[in-house]
Amino acid sequence: MIPNKYLGIGYKVLAVLLLLYAVVYGMLAQLPELPTLGQSSRNIFYHVPLWFVTLTMAGISLAYSLKYLRLTDPDAPRSGNPLLADARAREAAQLSALFISLGLATGIIWQRVTWGADMHSGELTAWWAWDPVQVCALIALLIYLAYFLLRSSFAEPEQRARIAAVYNIFAFATLIPLFFIIPKMLPGLHPTAEKGSFIFNKSDISNEFRLILYPGMLGFVLLGIWIFELRSRLAIAALKVEELLADKLYQTTSNG
């Protein structure tokens, strides 16, 4: 049995090593020449993993929202702080939104040199092609931004947490058609259009790319988990401040 302390350090070391490998080898490796893409094909090592982190964070957020609902169920035994589960769901959702934004921004840069290569920089379609995958990702971002808007409209923590948890289930459910169904149904510029993910398809991606892409993907996912762990610690500390303030207020009123 590996102690938790070593596991906690081990995955961080692994994340750093895998990311270093993906960045250094991804930039220096001799890769097959691809028409239109040129050297920009290396973007696959840094753009694609962002979507895997997005899905991981959205999954973690969903898990904590479900945990919150289970902990607040009057028929279920209470074993934990429901507000902590809600805070963790919020932090993971925030990271999901961050990684969607990064995926969109990096996609815009990549599209400028490929699909928009012959266009003038002043044209909007040189930067944004209204490709179904792009549009679906933008909708996913708006759905997660609405989650934060919804949270900010409730002052009472328990009411806010309950409604946000229910909305989060809906938000995660929308990711399935947005990322996996609609892009396959519509014609588009992404290689995934009508065909599905090519990342795991042996005939569509060469071994030279897979050798860097897969470790890079794992590295990015581990980095996402690392950041989530940090944000969780912040959420725990913030809850402790609230508890201490409430205690202080109680002491002041009972003394007065």
């Binding site: 050297q39 973007n43 840094y46």
Partner: peptide
Amino acid sequence: LMQSDKVYSVLAVLLIVFGTLIVYL
């Protein structure tokens, strides 16, 4: 972004990803 066989687009992507994450952290 198009110069040197579009390699600057990769550098821009790296800068966006790691720059944002560093600022966030």
